[in-house]
């Protein structure tokens, strides 16, 4: 495993207004994520996981602190630079899949392959998540697990350097969740994609290289697993 950090965060804080209150989503977070790592961010809802992921993914900007991707600063980058960064380097998987309901599985993947330089074919991406036979179905015709696998196929089809997953199993039952996590493990293993998964589901941490436990916008604990547990052996 290459040990050079893909991401470096230094003293990152984020506050935003929600209605009439200030929310301190992140309080001085610093961490490094190495190339090819499978990282799990663990914590209850409201602990700042999603904010951290959004900032790392170029969806959001910190209030203060620095974020580097491949030694290049993301903080202070223009909207156009962040868009290009997401377009070329980042794959996203969301808790609620965020598929386009009016497009089929293959077309949802094609959304990505249409705009990047060296994509896989949508069919290859769907094969990787074992959904080839469902490629012409619309999101409304698929189960939650299937929709999430389409979302993963959409994320990996661009062959991204990093895959960022926000509660990918949050809306799924255990068996389905495991299938989805297997798909992520496979992408991480076979494509070498640096993968960050956030979850409030503690057992998932066992499949990671490293685990960051978050609470109240700060990292409370960092652990490195000496042996990763296979997704199919997880239970919660």
């Amino acid at each position: 495993m290459d040990t050079a950090p893909v991401f470096s965060l230094r003293e990152v804080t984020k506050t935003y207004r929600m209605g009439e209150v200030d929310v301190h989503a992140l309080r001085s977070v610093s961490l490094d994520i190495r190339r090819g790592e499978f990282v799990v961010l663990l914590g209850p809802s409201g602990s700042g996981k999603s904010t951290l992921l959004n900032i790392v993914g170029g969806l959001d900007t910190p209030t203060s602190g620095d974020v580097f991707y491949d030694a290049r600063p993301l903080t202070g980058a223009t909207e156009a630079v962040l868009t290009a960064y997401r377009r070329q380097h980042v794959g996203f998987v969301f808790q609620f899949y965020n598929l386009i309901p009016s497009l089929t599985a293959r077309e949802n993947v094609a959304l990505v392959t249409d705009i990047v330089a060296r994509p896989m074919t949508p069919d290859d991406a769907l094969a990787l998540v074992q959904l080839s036979e469902r490629r012409d179905h619309f999101p409304s015709q698929m189960s939650g697990g299937e929709q999430q696998r389409v979302a993963i196929a959409r994320a990996i089809a661009k062959q991204p350097a990093v895959l960022l997953c926000d509660e990918p199993t949050g809306a799924l039952d255990v068996a389905t969740g495991i299938v989805v996590l297997e798909a992520l493990t496979r992408a991480n293993r076979e494509l070498g994609t640096t993968t960050v998964v956030i979850t409030h589901n503690a057992p998932v941490a066992a499949m990671a290289d490293r685990v960051f436990v978050m609470a109240d916008g700060a990292i409370r604990r960092e652990t490195a697993n000496t042996a990763r547990v296979a997704a199919r052996d997880l239970r919660w």
């Binding site: 156009a80 980042v90 969301f94 705009i115």
Partner: peptide, 16 residues
């Protein structure tokens, strides 16, 4: 709203 967000996250630009 969420579809727009997903498209933006995927890497579609404002112009697109």
């Amino acid at each position: 709203r969420e579809q727009i967000a997903a498209l933006r996250a995927i890497g579609y630009s404002r112009g697109e």
